[in-house]
Nucleic acid binder design. Structure first.
Lengths: 210, 210, 210, 210
DNA sequence: AATGAATGAGCGTTCATTCAT
DNA sequence: TATGAATGAACGCTCATTCAT
């Protein structure tokens, strides 16, 4: 969605813009369906019915496409998180529950179940991907931190940050167990209840460490 | 510890046995260094200084090599978990803390940080890999379940199982944040403390749902 | 003369058209020189001085190339047979003699001597090849059947068809004996005379079986 | 069956002799099932459950195995032909009919339908194979020539030979049309009748050319 | 903005062959 | 006799990339 990856001037016209979107959509679908391992320039081109040459007009290198793809997907999730900031609730605790519930539920979507592990793997080897991963998770945590600040105003920023990281890591860790088509998906609701309750308790009771 | 993926009769001599070990070691190193995406038969052969033909003498198909590789790695972790069962501690609570501490610390090893996300991705697409993943995590959870049973004898098996799954998922979810070379590795100890404390509290206070 | 085995859109420019022709020519030459066993994608590419990648741009799979190759060769022979239909002769008998003479002579060409046995072998295992073989021989026989119909109007279609099949099989059977470079090539003319005379006699004298 | 192809001394013991037979049997089955193209040393070894190394003890090179294979198969057919020489019949004509009938019927066996076209292809490229092919067909023809000599004592040897070649070629040419599983197999009996009748007539009426 | 055409490297795999044991 | 172990070449194929048109 930033465009700074393909040659400047590219996708200057309406049809070009649209093509970029179609490219990224196709690429995302492939990643979800077949994993990053299944993503190839030729496959994207084939999916769209355009020539490899034309694809390389928009993305000269595969890495560029991947960058844009990650950026766009992560921007999408970031938007969701920003929206969570404005969740209306009686009190911060209710808000915390709402946020965790939302994110935990999202684990079940096929996109989320499939995309994030790919991102984690990517981040293990690619600094830029690691940075994008931080970008999204820091927004995610900042939403939590703000709520925690309301619940525990006296806690240090570091403590709040730890709590937020612990909560987010705990939720993310359920992806491969209760995510879409994952073996314990049937236990999703029960585990969500556990995580919600436990997270609230943890925030309430966490001692100040400074 | 079974493997048995290469044709029977192969690796009958000492040198052959050794070659198989060298193959699997090299393959594992490649996966850790470059990810599954970087694993190729030719690369393994190149690394070992053997011919592609010779490699395919031991593993006729790449899938066979991967199967043996996963089996071996997972068997290794399973052995570790079985060992955790016998951790000596004053009481179940101390034992729970010890187990969580151990596993959480292990997240920091490069192998663990790099291998498990690859396994999660694999399991998303490959039924056999998914099965192997279940194989290891079920042992992992059973260790936790046994300790939980000692702490909360009146809890139903399902409740204990949920607690174990939640704890293990929570720990695993920290891999990509505080694992080896991961951005929040510096906070590893603080988060471990949080997770340990919180897990104990959760087991202690979890209500019976049946 | 259809082909259409390489992806549509490919070979749209003059150079591409030419390349396809060169590919099929080279493939044919290889088959004639070394047999189907000697035909490989890489060899075709090497012969033409193009890269394997470029060859597979035109023919994504070897089977596609073979299909196009067979189609083209067989189309060529079919055209010849169609031309034989219009052979001018005093009477049907003279026409029959002319046709048999032409086909029998053609056995001596290196292409024919080498190509047809390869086709027979292929047809033994590949349904599509078998179908192509039928395609050409049915045209071949239909030419004969039409002449036979003129010579023996009262014969049933089945009888005419049997005669045509017997004559064509008899001619084809000489390929490996009097064909190009075959051990009895010196006797070609004498055998041709025998086959021509005998075929005419057979058509003349064959009893109606219905 | 001559053995002169593998190292002298090899297969000197009973078990070794037996292994050679099993090798050639397996090789023949593969050729019939998959064609010459499907014949590989490793496949033969695999079929027999022996190691490639052991196979190469009997046949150091694939070419040697093929030589022995051809020799044995052709020896088998030659034996059949020699037996045909002794067919009892009222007169030479009946004998000729009996021989043609026998050979024409044999076209329908899977082995014959599959093996001979492979031999023809081989003979197109390999001088030794061509020689073996001549070996068998010359016996075949000599049987016919002898009968023809009885029917037409005044015909020159060359004429008799031409007749024999024409008859044999005509029969062979039916292989790919009425052989096992071939498209016109249903017409086998009718065509056999045609060929038998016509061959007898041809021998009876063929003019002396010298 | 798009295609056709081309390269060259890499992949997984099969193969004939060799040789020590 | 027989196996295990190894080589190295070839194969069909896919891929990222480039570039003229």
């Amino acid at each position: 969605m930033n465009g700074r990856r393909h040659k400047p001037g590219t996708a200057a016209y309406a049809t070009g813009q649209e093509t970029v979107v179609r490219i990224l959509d196709a690429a995302f679908d492939i990643v979800i369906d077949e994993g990053m391992a299944g993503l190839s320039m030729r496959r994207v081109a084939r999916t769209l019915g355009i020539s490899p040459g034309n694809l390389s007009y928009y993305y000269a290198a595969k890495a560029d496409l991947i960058e844009d793809l990650l950026t766009r997907v992560i921007d999408g999730y970031m938007l969701e998180f920003e929206r969570l900031r404005n969740v209306q609730a009686e009190d911060p605790e209710a808000q915390l529950k709402a946020v965790i519930t939302y994110v935990f539920n999202d684990l079940q979507s096929r996109s989320t179940t499939c995309f994030f592990p790919e991102l984690w793997v990517l981040a293990n080897r690619d600094a830029w991907a690691a940075q994008q991963m931080e970008r999204i998770y820091s927004v995610y945590r900042s939403v939590l931190e703000d709520i925690i600040a309301l619940m525990r105003p006296k806690l240090s920023a570091a403590d709040r940050s730890d709590l937020a990281l612990a909560i987010s890591a705990c939720i993310e860790g359920h992806t491969m167990f209760v995510g879409h088509d994952r073996p314990h998906r049937a236990r999703h609701a029960r585990l969500r209840a556990l995580v919600v309750t436990q997270s609230v308790m943890m925030v309430r009771s966490a001692p100040s460490t400074i």
